[in-house]
Each structure stands twice: as structure tokens, then as C-alpha cells.
Amino acid sequence: MQTKNKKTKFRYVWNFPGFGGWTAIFFGFLYIPIFILVCYSFNSSKFAMIWTGFSFRWYAKLFSNDDIQTATINSFIVAFAAAPLATIIATFSALALVRGGEFRFREFSSGLITLPLMVPEIVTAVATLIFFASLGINLGLINVIIAHTVFCIPFAFMPIKAALEAMDPNLELAARDLYSDKTSTFKTITLPLLTPGILSGFMLAFVISIDDFIITLMVAGGGATTLPVYIYSMVKMGVSPEVNAVSSLMLAFSIFIVTLYWFFNRKINN
């Protein structure tokens, strides 16, 4: 037996065998479906699921599809209206909740912010539908914008709150100590230091609004179709390769914004 030179590989006690491989499978599970979808968007076949060859034809086709273009424009209108609104409301709320000390409506107000996250999305969706329908409010895209604003508030709130909490409250006191009044302290200290957090909040709200489907499906009337709702109707009618192309573009767009957000946040933290 030549056990003399054989040394078992050293392993830290906190290092479990097999967990690395399991994690690889985990990431595979998360990303392989997305990868397959993107691959199939370059499929030249007329049938969505049968691979015949590489082609850009479905991307080219998107640009001649008026419905997709209208839906895309609608999506951007809604996101560019709802995300800033949600960000402004979230900013003011964060200022009051983080810097306002203890007060009577504190718990209540933070509860209000998280409410849209707690209530199942389908419930929010049908409740908003009933609400607008029974009040007879039918303003097309504006209905969608209102619903998105509500839903985006908690997402915009999280990074802004985190940025405020990470900020040394003594900085504002130091400014006050150095003869700066309330307004100029806000302008010269609080706002510049909070800007990265506010931008992060805006980006998250924007992504959430662009991606939202269930609420939009229920709330949007005719003519207010956004891109995800349009994709849904395409899927429901039968999967066409065009769906793969437009879906891949949407995925790329969301991933781009979130990656931007990530680099941005990393810069703040350093």
C-alpha cells in the first residue's frame, strides 16, 4: 500500500462538496431558458419551435409591424410618466420616514408603501379594474399610468431609503452648524448626496413599469395596449417567431437597465 505519499485534499470545514456543482445547475436553470429563447429568435424557420437556420428576418419584421411599434411607444409613455411620479413620491416619503424621527403615522406610512408588494398582483389588478370601471374613469393610458405609479412606489422607495440611511445624519447638522439654513442645507448637502439613490430608484421603477403585465392587462382598455400585453396576445394566438424576437429585445432592454443600475450602485458604495 502506498498510502505514505497520498494526502487527502485539504478542505475548509465551511466548504461543502457538491455545492459548487449544484450552484452551477441552479444558474443553468435560471439562464438556459432565456438563452434558448434568444437563440430561437434568430431561427429562420416560420415555425417558432423548429430550428432551420440563422436569420435576422424576425427582427426585420418587427420594424414593419405597426402594432408592435404602437405598443412599444405606449410602454415608454407609461414608464416615462409613472416612474418619475413614483420616484418623486418615494423620495419625499423616504425623507419623512428616515429623517423625520418618530411620529404617529410612521408605521402606517411605511405600511402604505409596502402595501402594493403585499397584495397579490392579480388582486391589485382586478381591484383597480373594478375601481376605474365603477367610477366610469376611462382615460386610456392615464388609467395605466395611475396603476403603474402605485405599483412602482415601493420599488423606487427601496434604494432611496437605503441611500438616506447610509448617509451620515451629522452631515446635515454640520451644514446647519456652518450657518446654512434648512433650504440651502437640502440643496447643497442632502440632494447632491441623495441623487444616486434617487436615480437608482427611478431605474428600478422604470424597469418594473416597462415589464408589468398583469395590472396592465386588466386595466388597459382598447388602444392602451403596452408591449407585454401585446406579446401576451401574440402568444395566446399561437407562438410565432416574431414573439421570440420582440421578447429577446425586451429582455435585453431590462437587463441593460438593471446592469446600469448595478454599476451605478457599486460606484456609490465605493
Binding site: L171, L173, A174, R176, D177, Y179, S180, D181, I189
Partner: peptide, 20 residues
């Protein structure tokens, strides 16, 4: 008087220099 009207200045424990 609010702090900005008091002719006293503070050196903070963690310095609290304006990072920007």
C-alpha cells in the same frame, strides 16, 4: 436660535466631512 444662527462650530466625532 437654530444652529445656523449660533456663532459656535462643531468638530464631529466621525468628522462628518461632506463627501461630495
Amino acid at each position: 436660535l437654530p444652529p445656523n444662527k449660533r456663532p459656535v462650530n462643531t468638530v464631529f466625532q466621525q468628522y462628518s466631512l461632506f463627501p461630495h
